[in-house]
Design a protein around this nucleic acid. Sequence first.
RNA 1: GGUCCCAUAGCUCAGCCGGAUAGAGCGACGGUUUCCUAAACCGUAGGCCGCAGGUUCGAUUCCUGCUGGGAUCACCA
Length: 572
Amino acid sequence: MAVPLSPFVLAAQQAVAHALGTEPEMFVVGTPPNPKMGDLAVGCFPAAKALKAAPPALAAKVVESFEATEMLVSATAAGPFVNFTVNTEALFMHLAKSALGDEELIAKSPGEGKSICVDFSSPNISKQLAYHHIRSTVIGHALVNLYRALGYRVVGINHLGDWGTTHGMLLAAYHRWPPAEPLTIKTLNGLYVKFREAMKEDEGLGDEGRAWFAKLENGDEEARKLWQHFKDVSWAEFETVYEMLGIKFDEVRGESAYVDDMPGVIEMLDKKGLSSVSEGALVVMLEEEGMPPLLLRKQDGATLYGTRDLAAAMYRWNEYAFERSLYVVDRGQSLHFKQLFRTLEKAGYEWSAKCSHVPFGLVRVGGKKTTTRGGNVVLLKEVFAEATERASAKISENNPEWEAKRVADTANTVGIGAIVFANIMSQRDKDVDFDWDDILSTSGDSGVYVQYGHARCCRTLEKAGIEDLDSDVDFALLTQPQERTLGLALSQLGDVVAKAADHNDPHLLSRYLLDVVSDFSTWYTQGNQDKALRVLCEDEAMKRARLSLVAMTKAVLKEGLGILGIDAPNAM
RNA sequence: GGUCCCAUAGCUCAGCCGGAUAGAGCGACGGUUUCCUAAACCGUAGGCCGCAGGUUCGAUUCCUGCUGGGAUCACCA
């Protein structure tokens, strides 16, 4: 994937490459350990072997032949490193154009004309959305936004778990213990748990569930009608949660949508000689790959989710000709996806290489994996409610003059934003333990911290009351080291977004936003001690320049949070 | 038992194509507000980067083995 780099990073690469006569792409641009040493650092190691020279000698050579450019004003050698200092005015001019002016904040060119499928959230119907559903939902949503920000056509897919034996069990449970209407998802969830519980005692119940699923799969009218009812009830509930999170799917196509495609898939695999009957079930053997077989059809003739996933993968390819097709699903299903992709590959579909499982660690409660049937779940809405309530108290305290609705709306944004951020912030692969205090913490590294920084920017701009900050600003006045540190951080937004998308890892963006706010806060709070260092200082020209930097920061934070699926209130 | 993931400060974690003195947050201790939002900022203390080898000029980072924790291994999704 082509990664767009900031013009300053490009300039540093080119300066080194030009001096050494090598390719610019080989050099990694980093940051010197101490800001006094410079703004951008390039190690000369990659060229050492080809040029048969020691890195320090190469660094000296680069510095010797360096000539100041529009972007870079100086270069110094520090051992094997070349440290460049960027042109402050050029830096802020560039930021002003992209953050405040006509140019894009993030280049849309990488994704032009390309499609990305993102399968995320994808809960089972008839079960309540629990806290552990949030990771797929928010990571997937952030991925959708990341790719979209880079110009891709993104199809966000909710592959509802609405088919399979589980739903036969639900039908059986419904008949056994007819619940009162109107039916709620809580009732359905309860029926399922009760049925699973009863199955432990009475093995015949399993057959009953399977029989109902067979009826469903064979198009039995009563079964279909009831199943549709369960689905409607479930989706209505899911939608309220997605709305709280600001999520809209481009495609809500559950497993049931592929029922008609399955015979074709099975026939195709049969024709290619990939399927066989083993222990009474129809399978694709994957022994050579060191994997257990992928099951297509059970002994009783009912299909399995692997079959439907094959059909869904093919549907997505035929429909969207994707550049990447992502499955944001917990790590527990790694084997399943390996089997799935390998089967597609064996069937001769080269595009299977474009499919990836984006796994994430599971959420534990009390040190244990949470499962609906185990009953040790924390409902997502409960967590949202608690977070919102806590935020509400603080907001009322800070803004006693606000009307109730504004407090409530802002509390929603802050409370839910905190939870979304917390779920993106940690590395995808790590398991996380659910802890009320952790998840609701609003100090330090948190979504609230980023929102707070944004709100500070907004309030400062509001107080200044100056509109036309995109012109007549003398950036040469921004000479403080904290100002260039912040400016340099802001200039990295596009690079970070591209990298996060490339790695399918939104947490890179969340970490970046924390860094930006930290740089901003350090700079901004200098004014607490010294009025001359405030943004809203006496000197009009200085005030304009600093306000412009505040506006750029605000734009970057707003954009970044937006990509993570988090709103940024103007005050809180 | 096979496969996969994880192991960094007291706690939760960054550090991802190997590179300069390993960084944050929480907690602890000390400081900052007649306020541009203290949900903030500054400072101090705190590390055999799980253990042992290997590759390399250089390893927290790559490879192998080991230990500990977790996930998963055919009729659920």
